[in-house]
Design a binder for these strands. Structure first.
Ligand SMILES: [Mg+2]
Ligand SMILES: [Mg+2]
Lengths: 232, 232
DNA sequence: TGAGAGAGGGTGTGA
DNA sequence: TCACACCCTCTCTCA
């Protein structure tokens, strides 16, 4: 919209002055959108148009962004293109893929899916495919997101060595955690088991009947415990 | 609880009749929220309040949900709790972790961060930490998201892409995770231990010398293992 | 035969 | 999820 003062943009991307020029390859199909202009309005950003085989924006092998307006998104859900694309994106090595969903239901009302369909698709993409999804309200915000994300990821790569903390967890806590990996066993039941049988070995040695004598452990949990320790 | 909503059936979660009862463990700190009631309003859903060591909603080996209202989220960004929590969530092995951000700026105006700060935090959480984030407009929608997500994940044999190490399935997987809670034991050594001793009980019964015969297990690891199972 | 050093691998941490 | 520092383990060498 207003590609002038860089300082006017309040995004962290420009707040923290970028150390060096960020080169962004933009798919030529994105040319008609307002995002490239918004990107170029930032200082230290150089964009080049290119034909990208995957994604719409690429920043030096750290970030690949697929941008979709709500309308695009709805369309790609309907024709099933979305999931194919998502699965190609997550397969990319060496770079973090990411989907930016641009727009609100207000300005994309015509193409909007029912909200539940939208959410359903988002769940599949995010949770099942594991593809990170960000939402943006406008092309300008999309540009800011891209830059901020690129900076974050880049910072990770160029980071001074850091101190490693070590955490000597107490033994009891350790044992408690071990038992908690058993389904239906949380901190409370884990502790009760330890109180009753003394150690994880004690728990492991108990019979299903023994186990059921513990307060809060029923047949189901007792069976599970025994099964995890001894197999079916 | 107030299971009066019958109109709550608008989600895909209930559109496709669930195959079996979904048991959801809810952290007791979520009791005051409206989400549990919204969950319970669904057919075939049984919720139990429990103390969860991590996350707010847990559907057995499938999904762990951390729910945050916008207000919570803003707070946790400010005090830095967010990233610590995210990194704990991302390391959960038993199930797929996920953050649901509930609310809009409209009804959480008071606590809202500047939009850029919100986006910045979301970028870090999603892109850098790789934690899936979903957004919800209301407690009811949160409930729908949880159920739909659980169904999706359960349905898909497709496990989300590889984590480091071996990826066994079923019971063996649980046994593997159990052993991984021991210091110095990761996926690789856990699997070797299981291959050698058959079950966690077998491992627990082994002497320190027995343990050291496993490839990759030395004196230090053997001692730790024995100690966790038997105490000092 | 035992000690010690060095390499490689695995784990755990931070982001 | 990814990258990598650290430390355990194993092997090889030399006494
Ligand atoms: Mg596109
Ligand atoms: Mg919470």
């Amino acid at each position: 919209m207003k590609p002038k003062q860089s300082n006017a943009m309040k995004t962290g991307a420009s707040d923290a002055p970028p150390q060096f020029v960020r080169r962004i390859a933009v798919d030529h199909r994105e040319r008609p959108s307002e995002v490239p202009a918004a990107l170029a309005a930032h200082p230290d950003v150089r964009i080049t148009f290119d034909q990208l085989s995957l994604g719409d924006y690429r920043i030096d092998n750290t970030l690949i962004v697929e941008r979709k307006t709500l309308t695009d998104f709805a369309q790609s859900v309907r024709d099933g293109r979305l999931f194919a694309q998502a699965s190609r994106l997550i397969r990319v090595k060496r770079a973090r893929p990411c989907l930016i969903l641009e727009g609100t239901r207000i300005n994309h009302w015509s193409a909007a899916l029912p909200r539940t369909a939208l959410q359903g698709a988002l769940i599949t993409v995010t949770l099942v495919f594991g593809l990170p999804v960000l939402r943006s309200a406008s092309p300008e915000e999309t540009a800011n997101l891209i830059l901020y994300a690129a900076d974050q990821l880049h910072r990770r790569a160029t980071r001074p060595p850091k101190r490693r903390g070590y955490h000597p967890k107490g033994l009891n806590r350790q044992q408690n955690f071990l038992l908690q990996t058993i389904p239906e066993i949380g901190p409370t039941r884990a502790q009760r088991l330890l109180n009753t049988f003394g150690t994880p070995f004690g728990v492991a040695s108990a019979t299903i009947d023994d186990l059921q004598m513990v307060d809060g452990i029923g047949k189901s949990a007792a069976t599970k415990i025994h099964q995890v320790f001894h197999g079916p």
